[in-house]
Simulated scan of single mutants.
Amino acid sequence: MSSQDVRRPASLAWDVSSATCPDAFDRYHQSMADLYDVTAEPADNDRVFISRTTVTLFANGTVGRGFSVGQTMRRTPAAIRRAGLDVINIALNFSPLVGDCGGTDVRTEPGAVQFRDMARESASHLDSVDLINVMVLREAAPAWMCDGAMHGAVMRPDTAAGRLLAGHLVVLARTAPELSREQGAAAIEAAILIAGSGAGRLIDPTADQSEAVYRTVRHRATKIIERRLLDPTLTIQAIVDGTGASRTTVFRAFGPGGVRAHVQNLRLDRARAMLRRQDGRRRTVSEVAFSHGFASAAHFSRLFRARFGHPPTEIAMPEPEGIAANESGSSEMRHGVVVDWLRDRAARLAA
């Protein structure tokens, strides 16, 4: 095993359905016992119960992506005493949520981020479970997240900080298994920093935390650029506004060359793909250059050579590629393993 593999975090995954496992919900209910008391409609001939989850374990918390059917989840005094789980939960829900946190009604729209103190009572109902879930060990969380004021707090998707935090969580969930342990821990800390900025609690980030934020900013900016790549009205300010970050943060995220160079490279990449396309029609260099926003074929050719090492007239057609089979998750639900790991980490940090 390489040293790089050793630094990878542990990850768990499962994909369970009542279509193949008739007692799937009973097993899910038992697996979730230390997290929530769960109520869901039993599966019938028209509806199949599923639980599809991935969780990656880092030193300061966990990052999870989960899908399931609609359900009500209650964090009761009995569940709190039984679990001994002391974490702060940051959840990005892609479906509406209605609930209660410590006696306060909570309603969130899709794309909102909610904070919960798992040592306090709560209840929530979701028509479907489609979420990204970060569990931060209390010992690794700042004091402002742990004083009760954030229990039930919501960052809405129509705020700059809310959009940036949601985007960061999406990138973190997607990349978590590929990150090193250090990168993953820094990315969780960066999520806390972004949340703190939205809550008016600013601190100076470390270099690793800044890079985690920049990774999210680059991802969000690239998605905006790709949607409008050939739009001549696309401006740098529109890209900045769409990320939810400041102009300075966006420019720092892209480094030398900045956003303009990134847009240019994406246009060159798409132009190259068009030249390589096998659809029975051979496009001229001039046609591709002008359709991708370049002022002239000569200018396009110079930039193309600089990026790819050869002129666009020497494009080679691609070889057919095989299709890799999808890998399925385990059929064993392992929420308990995640809870046990969090307990162990908390004990080590407290020692």
Rank of each mutant, 00 (worst) to 15 (best):
A160H: 12
A160Y: 09
A160I: 07
A161S: 11
G162A: 10
R163I: 11
R163H: 03
L165H: 01
L165T: 02
G167I: 00
H168L: 13
H168V: 00
L169Q: 08
L169K: 03
L169H: 09
V170Y: 06
L172A: 02
L172P: 00
R174Y: 01
S180K: 06
S180T: 15
R181W: 06
E182G: 11
E182R: 12
Q183G: 10
G184Y: 01
G184D: 01
A186E: 11
A187N: 08
A187I: 00
A187G: 11
E189K: 14
A190Q: 07
A190C: 14
A190G: 01
A190N: 02
A191S: 15
A191V: 05
I192Q: 12
L193S: 10
L193T: 01
A195N: 07
G196I: 13
S197W: 14
G198N: 12
G198E: 04
G200S: 09
G200E: 06
G200C: 07
R201N: 12
R201H: 13
L202I: 15
L202K: 13
L202Y: 13
D204P: 05
D204K: 14
P205E: 04
P205I: 14
D208S: 15
S210Y: 08
E211D: 11
E211V: 15
A212I: 03
A212D: 13
A212H: 11
Y214R: 14
R215P: 00
R215I: 02
T216N: 05
T216F: 00
V217S: 09
R218N: 06
R218P: 02
H219I: 10
H219T: 14
R220W: 04
R220E: 13
A221L: 11
A221H: 08
T222L: 13
T222W: 08
T222V: 04
K223P: 01
I224F: 05
I224P: 00
I224S: 04
I225G: 06
E226M: 13
E226A: 13
R227P: 01
R228C: 05
L229Q: 08
L230I: 15
D231V: 06
P232I: 07
